[in-house]
Design a binder for these strands. Structure first.
Lengths: 211, 211, 211, 211
DNA sequence: GATGAATGAGGGTTCATTCAT
DNA sequence: AATGAATGAACCCTCATTCAT
């Protein structure tokens, strides 16, 4: 049988593979580092035999990389749907900041994904490779945010005098850092409660259309 | 002999340990992931016997964690010195953006450090633990930037109407993201050349004293 | 799969484990000391992969301890069966002394087991711990000899005026020392041939029912 | 310098070597097994440098073997002196049984020595080899007890109708087993208090001159 | 297709021994 | 003579991968 590529449509993913993905994501949320996860841990949590993993994937790295790609796809698909329903950019931004204020494993996992997109380990590179596939392009964070922000520009809520790329850059910049601040409060040494309105205002000042 | 803690003064670090640190940093710059580095690789590069590593450290994890802490200490010590010599915040910012425009292993390594400060793997936690020591506090990124920015405020160049913490947050936010953008140009899909002046202006607008 | 405890019924022991046990016993008979045996030696002799050992046991110490417990169980089970078939205590004693007159590796191994039961190294303690389990109690040397001697008392062949415990002590005392004398003839500096009838008579005098 | 052989006269042993011996014996009394003791543990306890051990000995095995031989020599020298002062064999026997009733590390160590004399591991063989030297012969347990018992025979207290060797065998048999019974009370499952008079009487019956 | 027992290469760690000081 | 930092061979144990059932 052909092996899994990680780019299957969400609905084409076989149930056992889905359970493996869930196990991997769960482990990452619990703080495991991507390359250190053991195959047996994944298959145990997925409730399947160890050998079965190799019916679907060629190697351990592949399992984890596909799970990560799958999760990014799912999260950004969901995010776009949810954000599209908001009336204004202000509502969208509030929604995002709210989502980030909740400190939990998913926050950590998300930061791990950010890291994956930016470091140059072998593993990260293999994830990025998968994400470069045509099938994936619509879920690329830059694309998703690009569409959301473009609509904000079209609605006249956001600045049109700078490239869309800068808007994307700017929103990423604040969101990622805010997330970091929340995730590692005692390391960053900031009071995220107090920070939140400043962040909101900061973003609005920078990319919102002024008076 | 007492084992290395990672908090030794830079000049107290024994030469062999220094060579081990250099090897670790080099490996991380080359894309290795912290927990995957092999002891034999470190000692080979350092030109010492494998057993010698255990004369100084208790475990492999410890070697890498200490190397990372040491490097952060060195980099931020250097950074503070360099930035202190600049006349204005504008000069400081230009220096930082210039430094980040150079795409190389050190950039990647730096992002890896950022990741370390924000994820919750066992390894990251052990690095953060070391950084919480009193001896280290003066090198903490938030402290270093705090001092730099405070002087900017004192000189009347930066806004005094928001908490210093927000200034720190803001500068981190832009610098880290700009670094990511440079490091993964094809993933972020932005033209960092074009972006640079926008980033500079964005920061200045947000935290610089207007009017 | 659950790990081996060393208290499995002889017929429940998986074939590979049985081969490992055989290898360990053989090595001890050849003079290896229990804690110095190497895992690779065991698995090589057993004709299995090194990793396989860890499918069944948690650690090297465990392998050896279980092998020893297994062997004690087997030997004393066999001994009770054989002795039970003898008509009189005299026959039983002759059988035991004959068995001990044969100088070979098994003799040495047996003495090693005696040592294990009496020294207080970590390893010995772990063997004794296993032997304290309910499942093992019927094979305990004191129990086996207790039953044999009790029948001698019941048949009117052995003294009933001292506690059974003393009979056990007495028979152990002579058998173990006789075994030592045979095993280390040049160290003990005795002629075991000449000694044998004296030992027989000594035991009979001490615990046999007189006139 | 010539290396230590283990057969030096007690007064010729250099102070550092003596401290090493003391460390080894102490460790064995604490339950360590002879081959598992580490050089660094010995030298640490002896308060000397690790390298110093190799000024006196060729190998670790040698250190431990010499320490054991030295200790046997000392103990049996002491024992002969003490026993020689007793008036009768009965007094001597009582002294020995008293000595053995005290449960402590030295008891365990002594049993370890017994084991060393009877098993056939490489280490034990090297100890026995040293003990076969002419210089050592006067301290050999069989010799010491031989002299003590011979005097008992000469005084008319002990049987003269069996070879002296049998007397030696007999006393060893009971003493060693009694010691084992005391050392591992819960394993042997005997009440050593209750046993003591029986052991005394048993020995007297067997080797004492009757009528 | 699914399994999990079996494997063995690989890597962390220990520790006896050496040798320059 | 005494030292202890340095070494690397040795050895335990892990875990990705295979394959017979």
């Amino acid at each position: 049988m052909g092996k899994i590529t990680g780019l299957e449509n969400v609905h084409q993913v076989p149930p056992k593979v889905r359970r493996m993905y869930a196990a991997v994501i769960q482990l990452i949320e619990e703080g495991a580092d991507a390359t250190g996860i053991r195959v047996s841990t994944i298959t145990d949590r997925a409730g399947i035999g160890k050998g079965t993993a190799y019916e679907y994937f060629d190697s351990k790295e592949d399992i984890v990389a596909c799970a990560v790609v799958y999760q990014i796809q799912r999260v950004f698909d969901w995010l776009e749907n949810v954000l599209s329903e908001k009336k204004s950019f202000g509502d969208q931004l509030n929604f995002l900041l709210d989502a980030m204020s909740i400190q939990d494993g998913r926050k950590h996992a998300f930061l791990r994904f950010v890291n994956l997109l930016t470091d140059n380990s072998d593993f990260s590179r293999s994830v990025r490779e998968k994400m470069e596939a045509e099938e994936f392009s619509q879920y690329l964070p830059v694309r998703v945010f690009g569409r959301i922000l473009q609509r904000g520009v079209d609605r006249g809520e956001l600045r049109a005098d700078v490239p869309l790329e800068y808007l994307i850059y700017n929103i990423f910049s604040h969101l990622i850092t805010y997330m970091m601040a929340v995730a590692t409060e005692n390391c960053f040494r900031v009071d995220s409660q107090m920070m939140r309105p400043l962040v909101y205002q900061g973003i609005m000042n920078e990319i919102g259309k002024t008076g």
